[in-house]
Design a protein around this nucleic acid. Sequence first.
DNA 1: CTTTTCGCCGATAGTACTATCACCGAATAA
DNA 2: TTATTCGGTGATAGTACTATCGGCGAAAAG
Lengths: 215, 215
Amino acid sequence: MPDVTLSRREAKDLTRRRLLGSALRILDTEGEAGLSTGNVCRSAGIAQSTFYVHFRNMQDLLEALGEEAARQVGPVIREARQRSSDEPRSAERLRAAFRVPLEKMCAHPEFFRLSVRARFDRATPLGEAARRRAAATRAHLVEDLVAAGLPADTPERALRLEMVADGVTSMTEAMAIGHLDGRYPDIEECVDVLVAFFAGVRAQLLGDQPASGQG
Amino acid sequence: MPDVTLSRREAKDLTRRRLLGSALRILDTEGEAGLSTGNVCRSAGIAQSTFYVHFRNMQDLLEALGEEAARQVGPVIREARQRSSDEPRSAERLRAAFRVPLEKMCAHPEFFRLSVRARFDRATPLGEAARRRAAATRAHLVEDLVAAGLPADTPERALRLEMVADGVTSMTEAMAIGHLDGRYPDIEECVDVLVAFFAGVRAQLLGDQPASGQG
DNA sequence: CTTTTCGCCGATAGTACTATCACCGAATAA
DNA sequence: TTATTCGGTGATAGTACTATCGGCGAAAAG
């Protein structure tokens, strides 16, 4: 059980959180350009060199930030999908399953853009980590699609489902970016389009397999 | 002997093309990390400082490279779509309309990744230019979708079509990345998924009436 | 022809940030 | 208590690249 006074471990953890928080705040306000070790540490009220007590470099911090974000929003998104699966006739729950990810992406625009960009970076550990997280996210979506009744009973269909999950994710990101850019001001219209795309491919996938009752 | 003397204009243009070519070759071989003014100029056989005779900076060169790529592949892609529109019953022509963009994206992987990343960069002129090109590409796709019979007769439907074009593009990019990453080795399967997604949303748009009900 | 223009060159100042080092002092262990 | 650990600090060397400058010589202009 933790003591009331700050142990070394607790104090260090607190400083680390301050650094992560400062980095996210700087992303939200100054953008990616403001992300220098000096700037982050100044914003956190500690010395620049202390940065290296907690992280190997800035990319290491960003990797940790991404992990934490995934740990926080991942379950929320999956729960929204679960609720839709629990009540397949509810249009609103289906919409929520698409709306929740959109809103999470839009919560920290610069961090979202940075995360997406990182995935296209083949050269750095940050890119590697971003792709690993994306793969995990995709796997979760595949699981949820299977739970929703989509077929993955053959290797071909499993891969197909993976591609569908990939497509759904990339389209959700595209809608989020369009919304953030001001091109799609109404987020409900973004949800409309996502639901329409998904309904189409869902019908295709279900029609693909032997009839197993009503759809 | 042939007159090898080039006019100033011709010589300068040749040097510029050499620089552009070297940059693309370096992207294909060494990747983005090799893209320094010195490296590009060495590869082109000219002095590093000469770089600035032709471009303001590296981003300026990349912007020019993007413009040239768009000028070259844009018409090819549009022609594939046109051929599909000309014969709407041909499944193969529809597939080609999705396959051609995929192949063009995969022709220069690193340049492709760089271009996509640039779009998510809010801070630099290169990002600005990349988004402008993406908007033009989207507008062309909207035109082609209208030519293929999709409705854009109201502002709402026009925006909806814009979102669909956005979604189709982002999904095509996702399939290209998946293919380049080795996750989707068979490009025909990528085409399958794109066609399936598109068929679904196409049916929705054609069957949809003014009041888009929730669901 | 003379003069001007300008594409190319070699050399280098500038740049702002990263990452390391030795050290301090409080928490912890003995 | 004494000894040890370790999170935090100030100072600074390192870094590799960018972008500019004056000069040269051939093309273009007059």
